[in-house]
Each structure stands twice: as C-alpha cells, then as structure tokens.
Design a protein around this nucleic acid. Structure first.
Lengths: 227, 227
DNA sequence: ACAAAAGTGTTGTTACTACACCCATGG
DNA sequence: CCATGGGTGTAGTAACAACACTTTTGT
C-alpha cells in the first residue's frame, strides 16, 4: 500500500504523517532542509519534507525513508522530536505529524527531490520565510532541542566531517549556541571528556600554523555534559 | 464523532491513540495507573489507560480527557512522552500511540473507570505483571524520563500535597531515584534554589519534634538543576 | 618579516561531597 | 525520661570562569 492510497477518506479521520527537520552547517551557519510544496492550498510555500506513512513501516522507518529520498544519506543521527496533533494545523484535513530530527554533514551532498515537490534547499534558521502548516513552530522547537543536545551529548560529530580541527568544532558550537566560547576552556573541556582521538594528520589551510585533526572515538550517541 | 466510530476500517490504515502513564507515590513507593482490558485479544490483561482520539480534540486534550475520566483530576502536570509507532505493537491493527506522562498526588483520590475497562488500580513500578501491547516498554521509558525530570526540574510539587515537609520531599526523591540522599546536603541544595517558601505551619505527626511545612512558590514547570 | 590562526597554564571562585551531633515533641 | 525523626555546619575537593602570549606556517 502506498501513501497516496490514504487520505482520500473522511477529512475528519486523522491521517498519520512523518516530517523531518534536517539540520546542517553551511559556512558556519545553521541551516534547515526545506522543500517547496506543489499541492494546494500551500502551493509554492516552503515546508519540512515529510509525508503520510506507509502501512508496513514504523514511524522511524518512514523518517529514514524521507531522509534518504531527499539527501541520499542513510546512517545519520536521527531521533524523534515531538508529535504535533492540533486540530487545525493542516487546513485541509486532520493530520497528526510525528516530527523527527536529523543532523547531517552537507559536504559534497546532492539534494534530490521527488515529483511531489517543486524544489529543495538549505535555509538559514535565522530569518526564515513563511512556512506551510505549523512548521515554523516545529523548527523553533527543534532548534531548542539541538542546542540542548550540543551541550549535553556528543551528537556534534554528525554535523562535522569525519576528521576536523578543534577550532572547527568550536565554531560549530558557537554558531549553533549563538555565543562566543573561550578557546582555552573549550579545548580543555572537550579533551578532558576523552571523546576525541587525534586523526594523526594536520590540516594546512592557509598562511598560518597547521591544525591537528581529530575524530570522535565513537559515533554512538551518548549523554555527556559537554558545556 | 466518537472514538468508537473509528477503527472499523481497513486494519492496515493507522489509527491514532493516546495513552497516559500516570504516576503517583503511595506509601513512598512509585506506582503507575493501570486499567484492566475487556476487549480481545487482551481480555483480563492490564494496560495503560488510553484510547482512540476524537476528531475534534488535540492530542493533549485527549490525554487530559483520559486523565479526567479515570482520576477526576484536571490541573495536573502532563506532558508528551513519546509516540510509539511500530508496525506490530497492537496485534489487531495498525495503531500509532502518543503517550503522555502525568504526575499526581493520590491523596484522597477516587479512581473511576468506564464501561470500557474491567478494573483500575495503582501498581508498583517495580515487578510489574505482564502488560498488554508494548506498555511494559512504555513504562520503563516513562520512569527514566521521570527520574530525569526530578533531577532537572521542579515537577516534584505535582507528586506531593500542597504543603509538605522537607523530609517528605526527600523521601519522594529517594524512592523514585532509588538511592539514599544526604539529609544536610539535600536540604541545603533545595533551599538554595529558592523554589520553596515556608507554609508557616508545622506538621505534628508523632512523638518527635514537629517539622516545618513548605510549599512550592510556583507550580509552573521550570528547568533547574536540583541534584 | 609579517599576517593569521594554532596552541598552551594559572589563579580565584563556586559548587559538591562527606560526615555527627543536639533539638523538640508525644507518649 | 526516652524514643523518634527534625534540624544544623564545616572542611576538603573538584569543576568552572577569566584571562594573554608564544608558535608555526605560507606568502
């Protein structure tokens, strides 16, 4: 059974959807993945990627499917964020949407879209245009959760390339948390957590001293007080 | 439209339910509210209270309705916990269930049940019997969240009577976290947070020095590192 | 040689842990 | 008067915040 077979019934009967908020860093700016809707009444408006679940997949599988369709990525950090179920969040029918939350390294990543959408792109989280449904609210909530996650877990690995410098890591933290951090204290704290291991290489990027590259020892999500 | 009008369709079409994990302290033991199912194939088995949502209520309203039906309580602490959507979690049909999480003071509270159930009661969270659906898993997850909430927020007020002694508060923490706490450090920390205000009364409970009664200054949920 | 980012320590302050005795009451 | 839980302080330790200069490289 395909998604399109649902949703043709009584508009008061709830339909179950999954949406995904995918975040990445581009030019040390936090961005979210949006798609351009074709269907009325939101034609031309941008929204989070998502859709009705299929009858033979779990919610999480639906979220992974959505993510893979748009980004081609399979093994990324993904977790359930919240389920939005207000009566009039979708003007056309009763829709319950479980929103997932993904973090991605966009380096060399090609976005693809399906017939369903008229476009796809990364949008800065600051000053977002008007979005369809209640998606503006959803993104605000997701950003809050992302900030919390950065401070209390090791998920930052999912935003960065495999190997990265401590300054890159610090910049990621700074641009998402929206505040400057002390270089010495940051490095001391991060290294003392023993989450990182030197990659054994240097990054030579310009006319200045090269930086040591590090990797996360594990890419399993764990809870640690980082800051 | 009433809930019973749903669920008569194709069993592969997802139906949206809300379940509630209601916790309380009875005899300084953590307990959860369970109801006894009548319907096959879970006849006689205990489960979390819950049901299909109505077409004109939000998820949260459905959770409040469920809670009020069973406990008569209206203004309690309630928040969304998680949405469970595995394909075979309900043997009879595809059911997506958003689970809410409530904390209640059970003092002088009368449990009521509806036609739908064969019984209702408070069950110790330790050594639970077999439960219907995936509700054992749901409760384990909810207990984890409860422990986190106690350590990082002020929600403890919702488990206690309006006025309580510091020892009662400490006992609540100890029985939920499952460990002893140091009396002096606990009191020092709690009072330094300035969440409590003396109720101006004493609790005379037996042949020993009476204890000062306190109240929470606010019953709005806030995030504070308590322990 | 200079511009530009990498890298590195110390000190003061604050929060946390561990620990033992006297107090007020009811029976 | 005694059994019971209520109430209190201190000292050592660990985590955190604030702060500026030297090193290494490419051009």
């Amino acid at each position: 059974m395909t998604p399109s077979e649902f949703g043709t019934l009584d508009p008061r009967i709830p339909v179950v959807a999954v949406d995904v908020t995918v975040f990445t860093l581009l030019g040390s700016e936090l961005r979210v993945l949006l798609v351009r809707v074709k269907k009325r009444p939101y034609t031309g408006v941008w929204a989070l990627p998502g859709g009705i679940i299929c009858s033979d997949e779990s919610l999480e599988e639906a979220a992974y499917r959505e993510l893979a369709e748009k980004t081609g990525l399979k093994s990324v950090y993904l977790e359930q964020l919240f389920t939005f179920g207000d009566v009039n969040r979708d003007k056309t029918r009763r829709a319950i949407s479980t929103v997932y939350f993904a973090l991605v390294n966009a380096e060399g990543l090609e976005l693809k879209t399906t017939e369903k959408y008229a476009g796809i792109g990364w949008f800065p989280v600051k000053k977002l245009l008007r979005l369809a449904y209640d998606h503006a609210k959803v993104i605000r909530y997701a950003v809050k959760r992302l900030r919390w996650k950065l401070e209390y877990t090791n998920v930052a690995w999912s935003l960065l390339p495999r190997a990265f410098t401590l300054t890159e890591l610090q910049t990621a933290y700074e641009s998402i948390l929206g505040k400057k951090l002390d270089k010495r204290n940051f490095r001391k704290k991060i290294l003392s957590l023993r989450l990182l291991t030197p990659a054994g290489k240097m990054k030579h990027s310009a006319a200045h001293r090269p930086a040591e590259l590090y990797r996360f020892k594990t890419r399993k999500p764990i809870i640690v007080k980082v800051l």
